[in-house]
């Protein structure tokens, strides 16, 4: 049951959606597929008075070839996108991460925009109100310190978007429209590096599209999870190779994907790239596998992935 009552609105265009947001400023949330939002509302992590549904805004669902760029509407569904010819032809890392996202029934509801803007996760945070109240609120709930690492003053929740990791290797840009107009930024610029509030996004801003430079890439995505489907990543590693340069990204072990450029020959440089990432990540015991193990798997998955991709490219 969703404990808090809310109003439901279905605007037909972005302007109306933003206007509604401003009308109910501070009490409204946007809804796409709802596969991240609704579980949060059920747990009482989110108690909006108004839910603004973006699914009726047709212009947000399409994939367009704009010449130099491919524009992916933020409301495109994961399931449709993974079967899209452009995605399959040009962006294999993305195709693989889409395929690895949760399971097909959720892919049919979940959108790419919602996927990028899903909140960060922690076993001590994604719990019911009773659970959280009895344990004592953590940083991400407005408390004094972390519950996963008792006493810590940093939040260690993991940002678990599979597709953000892949998109980072493809030099994606995103478009945001809000009360102050429209802006376009690098996907990497979306992240605040603070797990408790992972995004640099202004109140009321709608993610309208994702842009990918139209350049054929080779690439792939490796996902660590316990079961063959449904599970969020415990670690995600993406690699794309475009026009002589490789990009490696590591996700689900912190508040954002960690991205490193690597030069050929990869055999020599991938280790260094992984080192750069290892210096930045601090996995803790806030998800189901041992944190040291998750860290240990970064070089393993990265090495395998780069080899596999480059073998395939030969």
């Amino acid at each position: 049951m969703i404990a808090s009552k809310f109003e439901f609105r279905s605007p037909k265009d972005v302007e109306e959606a933003v206007r509604l947001y401003r009308e109910f400023e501070g009490e409204a949330v946007y809804l796409s597929g709802g596969t991240d939002l609704v579980p949060r509302m059920k747990l009482g992590l989110e108690k909006p008075k108004v839910v603004i549904d973006l699914k009726r805004i047709a212009s947000l669902t399409t994939v367009e070839d704009q010449g130099d760029w491919i524009r992916i509407g933020a409301l495109a569904r994961i399931f449709d996108l993974k079967q899209n010819d452009i995605v399959r032809g040009e962006f294999p890392a993305l195709e693989a991460s889409l395929e690895g996202t949760s399971c097909e029934s959720l892919q049919m509801r979940g959108t790419i925009g919602g996927n990028l803007l899903q909140n960060s996760r922690c076993l001590f945070y994604n719990q019911s109100e009773f659970w959280r109240r009895s344990k004592g609120f953590c940083l991400k709930m407005g408390g004094e310190s972390c519950n996963a690492v008792p006493g810590a003053k940093t939040c260690f929740a993991n940002y678990c978007s599979d597709n953000a990791t892949a998109l980072c290797t493809l030099s994606a840009e995103i478009e945001l429209s809000g009360p102050d107009g429209t802006r376009r930024v690098n996907l990497e610029g979306l992240y605040s590096n603070k797990a408790e509030r992972p995004f640099e996004i202004q109140p009321g801003e709608i993610l309208t599209a994702i842009f990918l430079p139209k350049m054929r890439s080779v690439g792939g995505y490796e996902k660590l999870r316990v079961r063959g489907a449904i599970d969020y990543p415990l670690l995600g590693v993406a690699f794309s190779f475009v026009d002589g340069t490789g990009k490696l990204a590591v996700g689900a072990v912190g508040p954002r994907p960690y991205v490193v450029e690597i030069k050929q020959p990869f055999r020599d440089t991938v280790g260094e790239a992984v080192e750069t990432v290892l210096k930045q990540v601090k996995p803790v015991g806030n998800t189901v596998l041992d944190p040291d193990y998750r860290k240990q798997m970064i070089p393993v998955l990265a090495g395998r992935l780069v080899n596999k991709v480059m073998e395939g490219a030969k």
């Binding site: 076993l123 659970w131 009895s134 079961r227 489907a229 449904i230 599970d231 189901v288």
Partner: peptide, 16 residues
Amino acid sequence: WLLNPDLLEYKVPLAC
């Protein structure tokens, strides 16, 4: 406190 009182983080094997 049970950390996985749900069917997402308690890993019942799936068909696959």
